[in-house]
Computed example of a mutant assay.
Amino acid sequence: MKYYIKNKTLFLRGNFRAVSSGAGGGLSDVSTIINRTVEKNFVHDSPEKFIEGIVREEGCTGDFYGLLTAVDMKTLCVLINRTVTVFITAGVSNPNPKNPKLPGTINIIVHSRDGLFDEAMAGLIITATEAKTEALFSMGYDFAGTTTDAVVACCSKDNEKIHRYAGRMTDIGRWTAEAVLFGVQEAIARHDGKKPAEKPALYVLSTIGGDHWIEWSPEGCPYYPCHFRGQACNYCYCPFYPCNDEELGYFIETSAGGTVWACTTCILMHHPEIVDHMKKYPMATISELKKVAEVKNLKINAETET
């Protein structure tokens, strides 16, 4: 899965099995998922065709799912919890039957690096909605959501299916609920101006010293430079992970008896030249980037240097 923001639109690109409660949603194989910012009084005869126009204009082929919101993408919260990545835009200011002064849209996209059975993806919609409601109540709101909220759950359709269910008692459900519970509150705070929101925020669940969320930023990182001086940190959390490319990493055994992809010596994504190429061509493949590195005589794998 790769994601990027362009023209007021969050794009997720990949080879997904997905379920969506948004316009034109359902259960299907899709290659693109978007969340698009529209004007507050947006009206369109066919939201599905409007979304398709955005997808095709970007040059995306294949099927797609899309969500719409009046919330600015600079308030987007991206949250990484183990194998789950959650994308949230949230506002609570859209007309609602109980209180016409309380409108907005809370859009949530859940992506799992693990494979999911269809029933698990459907379960993630329930889990994400429950966590969203808990977040709203914890903030003092007396409603469970807005009238235009939507959720998408997805995974790579080629992955081996691992999770059959996704309630909050399961690992995948718990990881999702943790991210949504924290992320909805952060997204609303950013939308309401209670927290700075000059650009999207990336949060990672750290397990050091007990589980807690940290907002990652390349500016002022205490570990810089973790690979080499002059490195670029834009893709510190690599969009290709786990790439399974043995030139860039390797599998190691975990204390639980399984295996995990390790790429601590990979420096491909830290070269400024590679970052520039990714920004210009966000759908570039690992092979393409390795060729760029070869042409520019850049090392792609080395022991950490300072």
Rank of each mutant, 00 (worst) to 15 (best):
A189D: 05
L79H: 07
E48G: 03
E58T: 05
Y203D: 15
G230T: 01
W261M: 01
G26R: 11
F182D: 09
S156R: 14
V275C: 14
V38H: 02
L248H: 06
G91N: 04
S217Q: 11
I125D: 05
T69R: 05
K74Q: 15
T265A: 07
L116N: 09
T75H: 08
L67H: 14
A262I: 11
K161M: 09
F87D: 05
P97A: 04
E198S: 15
K101I: 13
K6D: 02
I88V: 06
F240V: 03
P95C: 11
T146W: 10
F251M: 02
R13T: 04
V30P: 05
N7C: 11
S93H: 12
L181C: 12
E186M: 05
T176G: 01
K40E: 04
T9P: 06
T207L: 02
V84Q: 04
Y250M: 02
S21I: 01
K98N: 13
I252G: 00
E247R: 15
A197C: 07
I267E: 07
I300H: 10
S206M: 01
V92K: 06
K74C: 02
E215C: 12
I126N: 14
I5W: 08
E130K: 15
S46I: 03
Y141C: 09
T89K: 09
G14P: 02
G91V: 00
M121N: 05
L136F: 10
V110A: 14
R82A: 04
L68V: 08
G230P: 01
E52T: 09
S31N: 11
R164G: 02
S206D: 07
I162G: 07
A150H: 08
T148V: 08
Y223S: 11
H44R: 08
C263H: 03
N107H: 03
G210C: 15
R164D: 00
E186K: 14
A122L: 07
T147L: 06
A302I: 13
R229E: 04
N94V: 13
I267V: 15
C155P: 08
I80F: 09
E246G: 01
I54L: 00
T170H: 04
K49S: 11
A189N: 04
N41G: 11
A177Q: 01
L10G: 08
H191Y: 06
I34W: 04
Y223I: 07
A189M: 03
V30L: 05
K132N: 00
M169D: 13
D149L: 04
D63L: 13
R113T: 09
K280H: 10
T304M: 01
K291G: 02
G62R: 08
E130G: 09
T176L: 05
D118W: 06
P282K: 15
V78C: 05
G59V: 03
G62C: 06
E178Q: 13
E48H: 01
V30N: 04
V152F: 14
K280P: 01
T75N: 14
C238M: 13
P196L: 08
I300D: 12
G145M: 11
E246Q: 00
R174A: 13
E305I: 01
F117H: 13
K280S: 14
H111P: 02
A131W: 12
G145W: 06
S112W: 12
T37H: 04
N7L: 14
E39S: 09
T61Y: 15
D211T: 14
V78S: 10
A256D: 12
A232G: 00
N41R: 13
T306D: 00
E294K: 15
D158F: 15
L102T: 14
A135C: 05
T133D: 11
G209R: 14
G210L: 15
